[in-house]
Simulated assay, not measured.
Amino acid sequence: MVLEISDDRLRRLYAYWSQKKGARRVPSRADIAPEEITDILPWVMLMERVGTRIRYRLVGDGFRQIYGDKLLGMYLDEIDLDHITAAYIEEYERAARDLVPVARKWTFTKLNGRHLEYERLILPLAPDDKTVNMFLTGAVGFGFG
């Protein structure tokens, strides 16, 4: 599988995740040190699996500006994703199920009329190299208004 990542910040996040996992399939949350990626932290989110749902545990200021709302503590199924909610959540499920990174560009319009275009990278994290409990996610806007 070829992962297509066009944004340099997301490519750096992917390289960091790859370096942290080493020979394992995925790194754990304990392997991630925010002070090692300070230049890209504004576009980084830490997502956690809570049962069958996914919650925003940390949201960088850069992404918060792209999305336009406070997301911290909210679940993916609670936020305004227009008509793409199921597909959006499925990408996290695929990353967890297959232990693979997932990258994609998204375009949609929120209920308040705000148009969003951004590239997102989902990187699974697992304490035991098989059961994903968190995601290191990066999202960078390439056009929004």
Rank of each mutant, 00 (worst) to 15 (best):
V44P: 00
L81K: 04
D80C: 03
I84E: 10
L111S: 15
D80P: 00
L125Q: 05
K70Q: 14
E90Y: 03
R97Q: 14
I89R: 10
Y56I: 08
I79T: 08
G141M: 08
R9H: 05
Y67W: 07
I89M: 14
L46R: 09
L116T: 00
A15E: 14
D31T: 08
L71I: 09
E35T: 12
W17I: 02
Q19K: 08
L121I: 05
M74I: 03
K70Y: 13
V102G: 00
A30I: 02
E4K: 13
E91V: 04
L136D: 04
E90L: 11
R24L: 09
L41S: 06
F108Q: 01
T38F: 08
R9I: 01
A87V: 07
A15V: 05
Y75T: 06
Y118A: 00
V132T: 11
L72H: 13
Y75W: 07
E119V: 03
P27G: 04
Y67M: 07
I5M: 03
F142E: 08
T52Q: 15
A103H: 04
A96I: 02
G73H: 07
T52M: 09
K20T: 02
I37M: 15
P101Q: 05
D129V: 11
D77T: 10
K110E: 12
S18H: 06
E4T: 13
E48P: 03
G22L: 12
R53H: 14
E90T: 10
A139P: 02
D129H: 11
G143N: 14
I5A: 01
F108W: 05
V44D: 05
R53E: 15
R114M: 10
G145H: 12
L46F: 15
L99F: 10
T131E: 11
E35M: 08
R97P: 02
A30W: 08
Y16G: 00
T131W: 03
E4A: 12
L41N: 07
R114P: 01
A86F: 12
A96F: 12
R29T: 09
V2T: 14
D7P: 02
F142N: 14
I66L: 15
I79L: 10
D77V: 08
V26E: 01
R24Y: 04
S18K: 11
D77I: 06
R53N: 12
R9G: 00
S6D: 12
Y67A: 04
V102S: 01
K110R: 15
R24V: 03
I40E: 01
D61G: 08
R57N: 11
N133E: 15
F135Q: 02
E91W: 09
E78Y: 10
I79F: 08
L10P: 00
